[in-house]
Design a protein around this nucleic acid. Structure first.
Lengths: 263, 263
DNA sequence: TTCCAGTGTTTGCATCAGACGAACGACTAT
DNA sequence: ATAGTCGTTCGTCTGATGCAAACACTGGAA
């Protein structure tokens, strides 16, 4: 059951003044992200703007090389590669994370991932597969709610309680499987447990049959992200799941914490 | 039959109507790309907009999660990782390129790169270093003029002549070293040579001391990009530079061409 | 404490930017 | 030819938007 904490209370709706014209362009970009290559008419009809409007927006975006027209259709340009690169460079820990996760994936043979929090959700930053790693749908840049994955719970456990409240209010606690945490009380209990042991489990709370173990990465008292190992329930059980993997992820998290202080 | 090249774009951008408000937001994004983390006042003063204007634009961008406010400053968000990922996914050849370049880098021990053309410039898509690979400044997403690098000349050689003219008109032929091609005549001669031998050299035309060999990747009669190997002039000479490396890059290009037909 | 100088934020207002929609030209298919 | 696409251009009118000025915080210094 879903107990709706409606947004009518929070300041999320206390919006500043925004720019409609920019919103239109962003909608167009978002549309182009979903459909690969679209014409003006198609965009105009779907988003319900006039063709003239769409045309002038695309002209602006094209002039700045955010979109490109080829074969008569508009697509997102390679500009975003550049932007992604600068964003990555600013995550000073990126290189350290990459190195350590590769090792973790090799040691465990499973899928290793790193994520950080933004706008109240987890954003996958890097993933690398061991030999027999599961193929999940998640890829770099994807967002996920925090309460239902090990990475998310690891991060929540080390954030201010009021920030946690804020996030829960903003996104709610959507249910994915029968094991998903859906109430505040459960969540705070779980976070307390995470703090005690230093790592978090995902016991098929997001995807049936998929289990994970995650540890937070904390520098200067602030959680900067978390890393996890994921695998099928058939392999993730007993001592491996309860003890060995937790040990591995916390060790890796420590390595990152230490190495990231010198960069 | 594709006959419709109606782009009378005449080098100087034929001015369609554009949206000023969007331009402002894009300027802000570009500014944030250069400086990591900026405040409203700083942005407003540099770009010469009023604080109120900047505020409402940032509010719009933040609402759509293109920027994020943390520690009192605005930064580009991780959203661009997601966008970059979808852009990459649409380059159907990306995975093939990655695999083949890794092999090429391992075989040669040198830096291997792949680039494609957009807006008349080369955009680096992937780079991977062999053991003793040079450390160049270029990274994924960077743009470069076509006439002064081997990747660029390889691509130009297999484009329509009128497209080449257009690009030259748009970007000119800036000089970087004493070896840089700076005249139309030289360029077209060089491209003819490239077509004859099937690969292109960079004889320290962009950076003193750096040499490259590149081969174009052509599918269905259209050039989709090019790959190159780069190294110091001290190692890139004699038979290796003139024969072996050309053989390797053309072979790799062929592998990519063949494999990309089944994806 | 009080003051200041620096932020970010809000708001009223006048203006012109921009969304609309219709007309046009280019193309394709029938 | 004809009809139906598509993208592009342009005049028009309205309300969005940029500006400036006032407002609200903050932190530091006296």
């Amino acid at each position: 059951m879903i107990t709706g904490f409606e947004m009518l209370s929070m300041g999320t709706s206390s919006k500043s003044r925004t720019v409609d014209a920019v919103q239109i362009s962003l909608n167009i970009i978002e549309f182009l992200q979903e459909r690969d290559g679209a014409g003006i008419t198609e965009i105009a009809e779907t988003l319900e703007y006039s063709k003239g409007t769409v045309h002038s927006h695309l002209a602006t975006l094209a002039e700045n090389e955010y979109v490109v027209k080829q074969d008569g259709v508009y697509r997102l340009s390679l500009r975003y590669l550049e932007l992604a690169e600068t964003v990555k460079d600013r995550l000073q820990i990126y290189d350290v994370v990459r190195e350590e996760l590769n090792e973790l994936a090799a040691d465990s043979g499973e899928l290793a991932q790193f994520a950080t929090e933004e706008h109240g959700r987890a954003v996958y930053i890097y993933k690398t597969g061991g030999e027999r790693a599961v193929q999940t749908a998640s890829s770099v840049g994807d967002r996920e709610y925090l309460h239902c994955i090990s990475l998310g719970k690891a991060m929540l456990a080390y954030m201010d309680e009021e920030r946690v409240e804020e996030i829960v209010e903003q996104h709610g606690l959507p249910q994915y499987t029968s094991s998903t945490i859906t109430t505040r009380e459960e969540l705070f209990e779980e976070l307390e447990a995470v703090r005690e042991q230093g790592y978090a489990f995902d016991r098929e709370e997001k995807i049936e049959g998929l289990r994970c173990v995650a540890a937070p990465v904390v520098t200067k008292g602030e959680v900067v992200g978390a890393l996890s190992v994921s695998g099928p329930a058939s392999r993730f059980e007993g001592e491996l799941y309860e003890e060995e993997l937790p040990k591995m992820v916390t060790r890796s998290a420590n390595v990152i914490e230490i190495n990231s202080q010198f960069s």
